[in-house]
Design a protein around this nucleic acid. Structure first.
Length: 184
DNA sequence: ATCCAGATGGTC
DNA sequence: ACCATCTGGATA
């Protein structure tokens, strides 16, 4: 069942935890590419010194200030895209980065999905999808009748520059999944 | 197994 | 001058 706008409109940390075990789907032509979400990170408000909204509503960060349930996709290190879902009501900049998927069906044949850059590459998600409404029919997240996964938290990856914000336990993952990205 | 340099370009 | 990454090569 496709997640509705009300799911995304809640506090970012709640949405992040609840996204573990959901399924991200991208309709590519006549195929559905996707997988089970096993790792995410929350980026929460302007005061979070790791969040792209820390400089206010700059051109890049504008999507974060928009309606919940839309995609925020940005370029990192000049060669990879990262896919996020915008959370919380309009005007409250917060988003959840999707970091790893357990690939579904034959998606694994297309590439790896154990990292934010890799999963975008494999699913065919790019900056052209920035601002896309995730309650529509191109890219969406759905819940299935799975047993609810165990969820643990750790600090976020690659944000050591953010001082005390780097130590917030805002990375959520399913510790039983072999598809979480490595690193500590 | 860990360490690390290099690729590559948008953003502030 | 960074940077929410990844790969491949060197080392052990």
């Amino acid at each position: 069942m496709k997640l509705k706008r009300s799911f995304y409109a809640r506090p970012c940390l709640e949405v992040a935890r609840d996204l573990i075990g959901k399924h991200l789907i991208h309709r590519r032509g006549d195929r559905l590419l996707g997988g089970r979400i096993v790792e995410v990170e929350a980026y929460v408000h302007e005061e979070d010194q790791a969040c792209h909204a820390r400089f206010g509503p700059t051109p890049r960060a504008l999507t974060l200030y928009g309606e919940p349930g839309h995609a925020y996709v940005f370029l990192i290190y000049g060669m990879y895209d990262c896919f996020n879902v915008v959370t919380e009501p309009k005007g409250s900049p917060a988003a959840v980065l999707i970091r790893a998927l357990e690939p579904q069906e034959d998606v694994a044949k297309l590439g790896k999905t154990d990292g934010p850059g890799k999963l975008c590459r494999t699913l065919g998600i790019s900056r052209t999808h920035n601002g896309l409404d995730l309650t529509a029919d191109l890219i969406w997240i759905e819940s299935r009748r799975d047993k609810s996964p165990k969820v643990v938290t750790t600090p976020r990856i690659g944000v050591d520059y953010a001082g005390r914000w780097a130590r917030k336990p805002w990375r959520f993952l399913d510790p039983n999944s072999p598809y979480v990205s490595r690193r500590k």
